[in-house]
């Protein structure tokens, strides 16, 4: 979407990895999870529920190619071929266009399942804020969703909303978080939820003599409040995990932490893999249940 915009908040490097400790030939079930998002696509291969390989790439212009690209990238460092994988599950915004998928599962279910794996079974509330949506999920100790909502209608609180502000204020998106704390006193949050109106409000504040950092702080605070209100709607329960691009913006996450009074859990896994890992785990569970391929 914003390829031509230079450094951005969602910036990350394409990467692939293979687990050297695993001999895939010994696994009973090899399952793949492919998460095609609006910005990035991930493919993971799990051997009996252990992460074996992954590939993480930028989503191209069409979902089918992006899915295949991510998978090829995941397999690149392995001696595994696609045909050896028993079951593929497609998820994410482009899930209906994942050609190798035996089945699709929503990103909601996959994120909860993936978070349960990555952060442990104590996770009850999962937040995922991407470039274009907000997902608030509550789950049980098995990673099964108990309550969720997804908001992709309105830009408020999403990465896109933050991009609009970074453009307006001429602050590179990667600097927004840090600069939002370079203020003498925390200003009140921008009052408009709507990004269009928040923009005019910000212009008005600048005209009144507010410093750029103060406006950034006011917008980060508004984003935190917006996200908090959506989390409250599904009910906030300990423990709490954050996935998606928002995890990289401390301007929002620190303010959100303050509102919630809960420290988010940490993980050694790349948080971008949550959906794909969840998908691969569903694939494994379905294999074990003896569910046949749909094809």
């Amino acid at each position: 979407m914003s390829d031509d915009k230079g450094p951005e908040f969602w910036r990350w490097t394409e990467s692939n990895w293979v687990n050297p400790d695993i001999r895939w030939q010994e696994a009973q079930f090899l399952t793949g999870g492919i998460d095609v998002g609006s910005v990035s696509s991930q493919a993971v291969i799990m051997a009996d529920g252990v992460l074996y390989a992954y590939g993480n790439r930028r989503t191209g212009s069409d979902s089918q190619t992006s899915a295949q690209d991510a998978l090829n990238f995941a397999l690149e460092k392995t001696d595994l071929i696609q045909e050896e994988v028993h079951y593929f599950i497609g998820t994410g915004y482009g899930r209906v266009n994942v050609p190798m998928a035996d089945r699709t599962v929503t990103e909601i279910a996959c994120h909860a399942k993936g978070a349960n794996f990555m952060y442990g079974p104590a996770v009850r509330t999962v937040l995922d804020v991407g470039g274009q949506d907000i997902k608030a999920i509550r789950c049980d100790d098995t990673g099964k969703v108990t309550n969720f909502l997804m908001n992709d209608k309105c830009a408020a609180g999403t990465g896109r909303g933050m991009e609009v502000f970074s453009d307006l204020l001429g602050v590179p998106i990667g600097d927004v978080g840090a600069r939002s704390f370079e203020v003498d006193k925390e200003p009140p949050p921008v009052s408009s939820t709507c990004v269009v109106y928040a923009k005019s409000e910000a212009t008005d504040l600048l005209r009144k003599g507010w410093a750029v950092n103060e406006v950034l702080a006011a917008y980060c605070a508004a984003m935190a409040e917006r996200i908090y209100s959506l989390l409250e709607r599904v009910g906030i329960e300990r423990e709490f995990a954050v996935t998606g691009g928002i995890a990289k913006n401390i301007g929002v996450t620190r303010r959100l932490r303050k509102l919630m009074g809960i420290e988010p859990l940490k993980t050694t896994y790349d948080t971008q893999l949550a959906g794909a890992i969840g998908a691969a785990l569903f694939g494994l569970a379905l294999c074990r249940k003896g569910k046949s391929r749909k094809t």
Binding site: N147, L149, K153, A156, T193, V234
Partner: peptide, 16 residues
């Protein structure tokens, strides 16, 4: 599971 479909925007929250 409580599955909420819909959205919230500046004007309010609309979920089924």
């Amino acid at each position: 599971m409580l599955a909420s479909y819909g959205y919230s925007d500046g004007s309010g929250a609309y979920f089924i």
